[in-house]
């Protein structure tokens, strides 16, 4: 039994039809979700026309920019550049260089405590900032 399973894994399957089928199922699900559920139940709205003279409008960014938007509030005045440019640009550069920084060939998450801890911390901070940005 164990042996059969091993050979199966080693040889695997082919892209068509096995993997392509899986992709098609997922795509069908996404298509139904986006077009029939989201677009019909929550139709996208068009607000009032832009009025540059009406400065009373308080803008709020899309949900995925809320964390940066919230971070800006903690860096007033001359420090604003840190949150507005330093953090986003710095994170993108670090993210891009990740495979060059982390040269440890180990792939199993349990054997990579530092990488996993960093991930959890960054995700938690981003989630908290996003929530705070959403409620304030």
């Amino acid at each position: 039994m164990e042996n059969i399973k091993k050979t199966e894994e080693k040889e695997g399957t082919t892209f068509y039809p096995s993997h392509l089928f899986k992709e098609m199922v997922v795509m069908m699900f996404v298509f139904v979700l986006v077009s029939f559920i989201l677009a019909l139940v929550f139709p996208v709205k068009l607000g009032d026309p832009a009025d540059p003279t009406d400065s009373s409008f308080v803008p709020k960014p899309e949900w995925y920019f809320l964390a940066i938007f919230q971070l800006l509030k903690y860096f007033p005045g001359v420090f604003e550049a840190i949150a507005a440019v330093g953090v986003p640009v710095g994170s993108i550069i670090l993210l891009m260089l990740l495979p060059l920084i982390d040269k440890n060939p180990e792939r199993r998450p349990r054997k990579r405590p530092i990488a996993m801890a960093l991930m959890v911390i960054i995700l938690a901070v981003t989630a908290i900032l996003t929530l705070l940005g959403a409620v304030t």
């Binding site: 894994e9 695997g12 399957t13 892209f15 068509y16 096995s18």
Partner: peptide, 13 residues
């Protein structure tokens, strides 16, 4: 290159 390309059997969603 496409149809018969081997893929691991254990790929999940």
């Amino acid at each position: 290159e496409i149809l018969d390309k081997p893929v691991h059997g254990r790929l999940n969603f």
